[in-house]
Design a protein around this nucleic acid. Structure first.
Lengths: 197, 197
DNA sequence: CTTGCTACTGGACGATCGATCAATTAGGCT
DNA sequence: AGCCTAATTGATCGATCGTCCAGTAGCAAG
């Protein structure tokens, strides 16, 4: 049923967030959805959390499968973020609907905050591990915020108009940022070595 | 009339894209909108282009007003991107509606491509000027793509949940990236000094 | 068999949507 | 004054929306 919601949002975008369309795709009646989820908003929120967690697990699995070193795992995660299956412009439709509800429904905001904190936590730990193996102490929080923003910004633009630049360029831009971080070129994202009084 | 469209989208988000709401805010009848713009889609497209150009001009003016050196102008643009007037979460509502239509209507895609190319051009020229004053030759296109993605990604997350981090942190992250670029830490974003055969 | 409970159906309700159009008003041109 | 065009109105249409609810089917317990 949640899968049907996501598929409807993929196919019809903003107008796919309709009980009738979703129930048609799911092959059930419209009343049944109101029986299980008490309102449309709760259904959308459940679908939101489901998609966010599934996406993070996909990225995390890709990261864990490829490469042993932290740097290789991070590279795998970056590449996976711009893989064709993730990059499908249809999926942006889904996120746009979700984000537009985050602004209005407090329950949606709660889902967003929770899943995004998890996402930053994954990125932060990975960045810290990469830094440790390169001899720099990375401040996980701001580094994760920057990398997630870079990933998201590139991903959104790639979905909006795929012809502007190529996915490999997006990967390169992220890798360059990580290299600069490990090379100490982003000193404000590293732990200060010494405290001055 | 276009102003009323933007205000309606700010106030009511996704549901504000309705001829009736817009006409009520504009203080005219619903029929009049169909008289001037032949359909709702054309009205939204006109409002999209209007907002995008107005935003770019605001940023460009802020950039030109503050500071004489290219680096100061770029800093002013970055700070302006996270100024309270730009950062209002309401405005994200408007962009989300526009982006969701970019995916479906070719005319919307055309508006997006045109305005985004302009935006990247502004950023690219500024980055190149900053690089020149620091003695590095910046490749305008990928650098502008990366900075715009970083700006957008941070801006979106700040609008979605303003409590996650502070606007000053976002400014710092962008400035750090620019400093790394000027310091030569992002070699793939610089022109190769020598050609090898 | 009856009772109670849950999954599930599908039609009805009022609201709102984009679009259309006849009718009315306003304004410049001769 | 007479006329033509453009601006503007508001009612109306069919479609679709979220929600609600009376009613059916399946099934376990008594």
């Amino acid at each position: 049923m949640i899968d049907a919601t996501l598929r409807s949002l993929e196919r019809h975008g903003r107008e796919g967030a309709s009980i009738r369309r979703i129930s048609a795709i799911a092959g059930v009646s419209s009343g049944l959805i109101h029986h299980h989820f008490r309102s449309k908003a709760r259904l959308i929120a459940a679908a939101y959390e489901s998609l966010a967690i599934e996406l993070q697990e996909t990225l995390y699995r890709e990261s864990a499968d490829h490469g042993g070193s932290p740097r290789e795992r991070l590279s795998a995660l970056i590449r996976a973020s711009f893989a064709p299956s993730i990059l499908e412009p249809r999926i942006l439709n889904v996120w746009l609907v979700f984000w537009s509800m985050v602004m209005r429904a407090p329950s949606m905001r709660a889902v967003h905050d929770r899943t995004y904190r998890r996402y930053r936590s994954i990125l932060g730990r990975l960045l810290q591990a990469v830094g440790r193996s390169r001899g720099v102490r990375v401040r996980a929080r701001p580094a994760a915020i920057a990398l997630s923003a870079l990933l998201d910004g590139l991903w959104i633009e790639l979905c909006l108009s795929p012809g502007t630049f190529r996915p490999t360029e997006a990967v390169m831009l992220c890798e360059s940022w990580v290299d600069a971080l490990c090379g100490g070129a982003l000193p404000q994202l590293l732990q200060p070595r010494k405290r001055r009084s």
